[in-house]
Each structure stands twice: as C-alpha cells, then as structure tokens.
Amino acid sequence: MSDFKLDFEKSIIELEKKIEELKKFTESREIDFSEEIKKLEIKSESMKREIYSKLSPWQRIQVAKNLLRPRTLDYIQKVFEDFIPLHGDRLFKDDTAVIGGLAFFEGAPVVVLGHQKGKDTKDHIFRNFGMANPEGYRKALRLIQMAERFNRPVISFVDTPGAYPGIGAEERGVAEAIAKNLKELSGVKTPIIVIVHGEGGSGGALGIAIGDRILMLENAVYSVISPEGCSAIIWKNASRAADASVVLKMTAQDLLELGVIDEIIKEPAGGAHRNHAEIIQTMKNVIRKSLKELVGLDKNELVARRYEKFRAMGKFLEIEG
C-alpha cells in the first residue's frame, strides 16, 4: 500500500508488512514459513473485516475519498470491453469531470458514463476534482438519450464532491442542467443502473443518479450536503464535520435503511482500494444481475416503476381527516 495512509488501517498495514517480510525471507533463505504466513494471512483477513465492519461514517468518508480506490475510468476499462470514449455536450465544451461513451458488457452494447476524479495533482486539476460544470450534465443527457434511441442500457458511475461552484457554472446554468437531467432521466425508456462508488455529493451526484437500480459500494457515501458544510451551518464552523457525518446518515447502510438505494455492493476485506481485481469481479456480477432483471421489461412498465421508486421517497406524518 503506497504512501497513502488511513490512520485506522495502521494495524492492518503493519501485519501486511510482516507477511511481506516473511514471504521474502522464505524466498531468500529457503526456510519454509508457509504455515506461519498462512496463519498471519487469515489473521489479517479477519482483522480487516473486523476493523472495516466498525468504521465510523467519518472514517468511511476517508475510505470513499481514498486516492487508491478505483475511479470511474478503472471500472469502465476493466468491467467493460472496447470502451469508446465520447466527448462534448454539443453546446459549449467537453467537461473533463464527466466521462462517458460506448462499451460492451460481456458482449452486449451499453452506454457507460460517470464522474471522473483524478489520481494525482495534475490529474486532479485536469478532472476539476470530479466537480462537473453544466456541460458534464448535458453530455451525460446526450449519451443517455442516444442510449434510449438505440435501446441500450445505461450504467452511470457516481463519484463527485458536488457540482462545481464557479461563476461560469452559474452563468451557463448548472441548476438548469441538473434539473433537466432529473426530469428527463425519470422518463428515459431504457434501463439505467446507477452505481455510487465513491462520493455522492448532493445535486452534483443526483444529476446522473436517476435510475432503475441505485447501488452503492459498502464504503461509499451519499449526502445532501458535505459534512463540512453542514457543520459550518449548525455549529458555525467546519471543524465538527465528523459529528455532522454521523447526523447526516450518509453511509450505504443508512441509505439502504432510508429506502434510497436498492442494494449495497460488498467490498473486498479492507476496502476496494486493497483489491481492485476482486471489486472489478464483484462489479461484473452485480451489473450482470441488474441487467438481467431490467433488460426485456416492458418500457412503459420500466418507466412507471422508476417513477414510483422516487415517488415513494420521503418521510412525513400524514394526518387523516
């Protein structure tokens, strides 16, 4: 695990180092430690599960933002075949924070898209930290409407801190772009699978997160406001973000209980960043299953169910009379 560290992973990383050393020792001195290694590996596995099962919401946010976690492009390139990236909203420019295009899932043509965050400083800047401008939402809508015309399912990957709060974004109507997506996606006559795999940052996330299946990775988060922003409003400073993250109920488990998502996608022991191959395989299984449930459904039925899905969200007290 390179130089990126999560403090609660300290004991996991120490154990992983020890296992690595023993393996090297076995190779160089030709002494057989395989029994010990096996034991330690079992221990490490259960330690990862143990630690990760007890993460606080704030710790999960750190995992969700973790630089080593697969990004949308990793999923698109490894879960699908023959990705053909497409660019531009045909109105203003190409938004590098939202990627998308044509691809094949186990041979079947699909449209894929999502927010793309960077991997290093240069890439972060190029991707605008995954914060879309209006063009990103308009590009997404263009691709989804094309998918509808050619009867191709859509898989949308969500990973953004939020839409970009800039002068240009406001001038070019980021609110209109998001609103239009919410409206149009609710009626698109082709299956849409939404996968929140990192950060689901408010309206900026929702703008590409209307679909028939809303799935969320175990350590992903999804919220109406950032915990920092929430803390600044309630406690007049951003320093109690960790407390706010508890109050906001933004983990996958919370969202499942609130009826916002359909399913939690289990991550490898110790988080998706620890085992890309495993999470890619899991992702394939989950997408295969969802597509099987949705493809072939009557289009009007599909849209009617999608409407009911979002229509039912909300909690209030109704007084009869």
Partner: peptide, 24 residues
Amino acid sequence: ARMHEGILSLMQMAKTSAALKKLS
C-alpha cells in the same frame, strides 16, 4: 434542499422533477 432531512431532501428534487415530466 433541507439538510435536516438528509438524503431524503435531495430525493425530493428527483420526485418533483419526475412529477413535472409527467405533467409535461
């Protein structure tokens, strides 16, 4: 969106927009 109702407030955006799609 009212943060005091967390993610369910965000989902009201989807709900109202979908209803307006039906109207349209």
